[in-house]
Amino acid sequence: MANRLDFERPVQELEDKIEELKSFMDEKNIDLSDEISRLQKRLAYMEEEVYGNMTAWNRVQLARHPERPTTLDYIDRIFDDFIELHGDRAFGDDEAIVGGIATFEDKPVTVVGHQRGKDTKENLRRNFGMPHPEGYRKALRLMKQAEKFNRPVVFLLDTKGAFPGKAAEERGQSEAIARNLIEMAGLTVPIVCIVIGEGASGGALAIGVGNHVHMLENSWYSVISPEGAAALLWKDSSLAQQAADTMKITAPDLKELDVIDEIVPEAKGGAHRNVEEQAASIQKVLKKSLEELSKLSKTELVEQRYEKYRNIGQYTFVTDTIGLK
C-alpha cells in the first residue's frame, strides 16, 4: 500500500474499513455485502470529495511524493531501445539529468529529463535532481545531436531548481541555462516538454522551451517554489501552502494562463498509484503531439515556437508617458 498523505486520510480510513469487513465476512461466513456496498458507495463519494477538491498545496505534496515515478520510470515504460548517453564533453557527467536515444512508436527520438533519486543514496548521487551547468550542457549536446539526425526531442521536467552552489556559479549556471533557452528556440526538430513532477524556475525552463508543453495533473510549474515565494514575499517560508495557491502554479492554473497545452490526467491519488496507467496516458499525449508536429517543416517548427512564446504575457498601456527627463 502506497504512502498516503494527510489529506487522503479519510479515503484511506474508509478503504481500511471495507477491507476489514471483507475479511471478517470471509472468516465468519456472515453476509455483510449490503454494508460493504454501502461503504463502497460512500468511498466513491469521498474520493470525489477529496480528489475533486484538491488544493494547490495538495498537488504540490503529490508532485513531491517519495514514490512518484521519475524520468527513468517513464523512459522504461514509454520508449523502446533506450541507450543512456553521458557527459557534456567539457567537465563531467551530471546525473541530475539523464538523456539518451530511443525509439518511440518505432521512430527514433532523443529523450532527456531531470532525474531525482528514490532514496537518500541515489539522491546524493543525483543531487536531488538539481542540475549543475554540466547537466544543462549535456542536455544541449543531446538536443543538437537530435537536430543533426533530424529526430524529435522529448524533455521530461522534474526539478526543485538548478543547484544553488559555488561550483555551479563558477562554471556558469546562468550561461548554461540561458544558452539552452536560445538553442531550444532555434532547434529545427520537434520539441515536446512534459512536466512530470516539480517545475521550479529557470532550472526547469532550461529544458522546457518546446513546441508543445504538457503537465501532469498533479505537477507544478512556476517561477519559484512555494517555499521560496513565501520566504521572498512574506519573509516566512512556513506560508508555503498559501504561496502555492497565490502563485498559481498548478496544471489547471497554467492551462488557464495559456502557458501549457494539455493536462495529462493522473490516477486518483497521484501518478504513483498506477505507474503503468500513468505511462500509458503520457504515451498517448506524446504520440498525439509528435504526430501533429511531424507535419511541420523545420522553418514552421521554429516559427510555431516563436509565436507560442511571443504571445505569453499580460500588459496594457497608459497615455501619460513619462519619457526622458
Binding site: 525552463l205 517561477v223 502563485m247 494562463l257 502557458v259 499580460q314
Partner: peptide, 9 residues
C-alpha cells in the same frame, strides 16, 4: 509567477 518565467523564453 510563471508568466515572468516565460519572459525568459
Amino acid at each position: 509567477g510563471v508568466l515572468s518565467l516565460m519572459q525568459m523564453a
